[in-house]
Computed example of a mutant assay.
Amino acid sequence: MAEFIIGTEIKSDVPTIEVTVNPDRPLPIGRQRFQLVVVDDAGNVSRADEVVIIVADQSAPTAVIRAPSLVPSGQSFTLDGSASFDVGGGRVTTWVWTYAGPAV
């Protein structure tokens, strides 16, 4: 496992490496480039090969609704969705409210 930092080489004696992502510093959403250079036992160095990985937010946000548990008849009240969140790296931009009718 390796935590990659832009422009910093990580040398390995095996042909695979796991990209370790720190939850406090995830890879930015979007197109991210990784390069590989290999060296043979004679010290010859290859040209760099490159791959582009698309980091995407594919996690659905979580809706959290707060409301008073009791409201006097005929009085207005506030529904609050500000505690809603997106753990996938995005941010909530739209709240869609629906009155679903009487509870059973």
Rank of each mutant, 00 (worst) to 15 (best):
F34Q: 02
F77Q: 03
V38F: 12
L27H: 07
A48H: 02
R47L: 13
V64M: 11
S76L: 08
P72E: 12
G30M: 04
Q75E: 14
S59L: 15
S73I: 14
T78I: 14
D40T: 05
S69W: 10
V38K: 06
N44K: 09
D57E: 10
A67S: 11
A67Y: 12
A48L: 04
L27T: 03
D40L: 07
V52Q: 04
A67V: 09
S46V: 08
V71R: 01
S76H: 09
A60L: 14
V45T: 09
S46I: 06
G43K: 00
G74N: 04
D49K: 09
I65K: 09
A56K: 04
V37Y: 02
T62H: 10
V64P: 00
V55S: 01
A48C: 04
I29S: 03
A63V: 15
A60D: 15
L27W: 11
T62L: 10
T78N: 11
L70S: 15
V38C: 11
V71E: 01
P68A: 14
V71A: 02
P72Y: 06
L70W: 10
V55L: 04
D41E: 13
G81I: 04
A60V: 09
Q32S: 07
P68C: 08
D57N: 14
D80R: 02
D57C: 02
A42Y: 10
T62K: 08
A63T: 15
A63G: 08
R31V: 11
S69L: 15
Q32N: 14
A48F: 05
I54F: 02
A56G: 06
D49M: 05
P61H: 03
S73Y: 11
A63S: 15
R33F: 01
S69Q: 15
D41F: 08
R47P: 02
A67H: 13
F77E: 07
D41W: 05
I53L: 12
G74L: 02
S46H: 03
S69F: 13
G74V: 06
D40F: 06
I65N: 12
F34N: 00
Q75I: 01
V52K: 00
V51T: 05
F77P: 01
S59M: 13
D57I: 04
D80C: 06
I53E: 05
Q32T: 10
G30D: 06
Q75H: 11
D57S: 02
V37N: 03
R31N: 14
G30K: 00
G81T: 01
Q35C: 00
R47T: 13
V38N: 05
I65R: 07
A60N: 12
Q32F: 03
Q58N: 15
L79G: 02
A67R: 04
G81Q: 01
A56Q: 09
F77S: 05
S46G: 11
A42K: 10
F34G: 01
Q58V: 14
I29K: 07
A63N: 11
R66K: 15
L27N: 02
G30L: 03
S73T: 13
L36E: 07
T78W: 12
Q35Y: 11
I53M: 05
S59T: 14
V52D: 08
R47S: 14
R66M: 12
L36D: 05
V71Y: 08
G81E: 03
V52I: 12
Q75V: 09
R66V: 13
